[in-house]
């Protein structure tokens, strides 16, 4: 496919007359041929995105289970699963934990830390910058399984590295502060994306504007507020949108706390895994997934509206 898309010049030569009518048909393909070009992509989207989403919606209306009689002959139960979900305190607890997780690790942690690093390193060159960036990116690109194993070893209450360093033997980080543990973990894990995005965005702020602000006697904070932020507003919102959604659906905390102890770090992604696959309630899990999808849509629409109201 990559080959085919890289050959538009040939196409243009063949269809030279069509090119002259320079209206909406910029590539000069005509409706039919354009349709042929996008058809594979649309088919893929239909097969792998639209169909599964509709299928989940349907499963949410049944009592489908992983095992037992309801696995062989699922029954239609209407909105029972949805009613069960919204009247289940465990579900709301998970939603609240997820909100904490997104606000704490993505919005405050990753954006704050990512921007701070990008701002501090904006004019630097040389080994320090490369070292800091290298370490932050390393945390991002390591496989989740490896990283979670390292964090369990770090935070373990008996033989954990952190307790050995702090001289606090037996302090159960993962049991007494499970949410804090996974929030700090995810901040550490995902800062690289925000750092790189802001690093690129700060490069686009015209140095002359900053220079004039400095000459006018603006403080560091005033420069940030009045010169830098207006320039990178779009980047900030796009970044927030992406990492909020990623974090909302992130499953990696499962590998550190497994949702425990007693559901105290059971964010929605873990909650769905537990009810659908561990307890085998696929129908109920599908209903919860649908609700998560709706929450994601609301979050996305919120950010996109902010983006559109740019000026």
């Amino acid at each position: 496919m990559a080959q085919a898309t890289s050959s538009p010049p040939e196409t243009l030569d063949e269809d030279a007359p069509a090119r002259r009518s320079y209206s909406s048909d910029a590539a000069g393909l005509g409706r039919l041929r354009a349709g042929v070009f996008v058809a594979p992509a649309l088919l893929l989207i239909a097969a792998f995105l639209v169909f599964p989403a509709l299928w989940v919606l349907y499963l949410g209306l049944t009592n489908y289970r992983l095992t037992g009689i309801a696995a062989a002959e699922p029954q239609f139960v209407g909105l029972d699963n949805f009613i069960d979900a919204v009247s289940n305190p465990v579900f709301w607890n998970s939603t609240w934990l997820t909100v904490q997780f997104v606000l704490g690790s993505a919005v405050i942690g990753q954006v704050g830390l990512g921007f701070t690093i990008a701002w501090l390193l904006r004019d630097r060159r040389g080994p320090l910058k490369r070292l800091v960036e290298g370490l932050v990116i390393l945390a991002w690109i390591l496989p989740s399984a490896v990283v979670s194993f390292l964090w369990v070893a770090l935070l373990d209450r008996d033989g954990g590295t952190l307790n050995a360093l702090l001289g606090l033997p037996g302090f159960a980080w993962l049991l007494d502060h499970p949410m804090l543990s996974i929030i700090i973990f995810n901040t550490w894990r995902g800062t690289a994306f925000s750092m790189m995005l802001y690093g690129a965005a700060l490069g686009n702020v015209p140095p002359s504007h900053l220079e004039s602000a400095r000459l006018a006697g603006a403080s560091g904070w005033q420069q940030l507020r009045d010169v830098v932020f207006p320039h990178i507003r779009g980047h900030i919102l796009t970044n927030l949108l992406l990492i909020s959604l990623w974090t909302f659906n992130d499953f990696t905390p499962f590998m550190i706390t497994a949702g425990g102890p007693d559901g105290k770090s059971e964010i929605l992604a873990v909650h769905v895994y537990k009810v659908a696959l561990q307890s085998g309630e696929l129908g109920y899990g599908a209903a919860v997934s649908t609700v998560i999808l709706l929450i994601n849509l609301v979050v996305a629409v919120f950010y996109l509206r902010l983006l559109r109201s740019k000026k």
């Binding site: 992983l66 095992t67 009689i69 062989a72 085998g280």
Partner: peptide
């Protein structure tokens, strides 16, 4: 369960005795 549900899995499998009921009912 996921293997068996999707028509896959090894030819000879070990299961725990208490799963027999729910596995049998699911076919």
């Amino acid at each position: 369960s996921l293997d068996l549900k999707s028509g896959k899995g090894a030819d000879v499998i070990d299961i725990d005795g208490i799963w027999a009921g729910e596995f049998a009912e699911a076919g």
